[in-house]
Amino acid sequence: MSTTPTLTGARLWAMAALRMLIGWHLLYEGIAKLSNSYWTSAGFLADSQGPLAGFYLWLASDPGRLTAVDWLNQWGLTLIGAAMILGVFSRAATLMAAVLLGLYYLGSPPWPGIVVNAPAEGSYLIVNKTLIEFVALIVLWLFPTGRQVGFDSYLSRGGDQ
């Protein structure tokens, strides 16, 4: 990435708003999981369909592995979400969020031939909201706003690269 485009005006605020809204979504997902002591990823993992189903089932089949996955999800979502709202290390956070969303998408991708068991609130073919959020995160990573709207401006240049 040679030059990072600098957004201004309405473009800047629209992009920053998108960043903060996705951050809100992830942060609240994290907080909801942290505050529910009964939450576990076991159901999602065990019911996974698609290319990673075997791997997810393996993760779910051992209490030690499951605890680690639960912990990473709870704290990962919380910290990434907070970082995206505040604009702290926002590019790194955006990239990590994209990785997480990609893993969720591949857990039950709405691909032809894959029977997804979990109830969905809409009708999806290949594209679902997880995939759209994933692509939105890629866009946010390409058009960073943390130094203009956020605390990245306080951090050294290494902050978000």
């Binding site: 529910n36 002591s37 009964y38 939450w39 576990t40 076991a42 159901g43 999602f44 065990a46 019911d47 089949s61 209490p63 068991n117 979990a118 109830p119």
Partner: peptide, 29 residues
């Protein structure tokens, strides 16, 4: 084997719970 009794679940979790689970656990094993 998971985290015990849950009085507040999301719709998705309710669905997973209704399908039962794969393993029998004692003390996490």
């Amino acid at each position: 084997g998971f985290k015990g009794l849950d009085a507040v679940t999301t719709a998705t979790e309710e669905y997973f719970a209704s399908r039962g689970l794969l393993f029998t656990y004692r003390g996490g094993q």
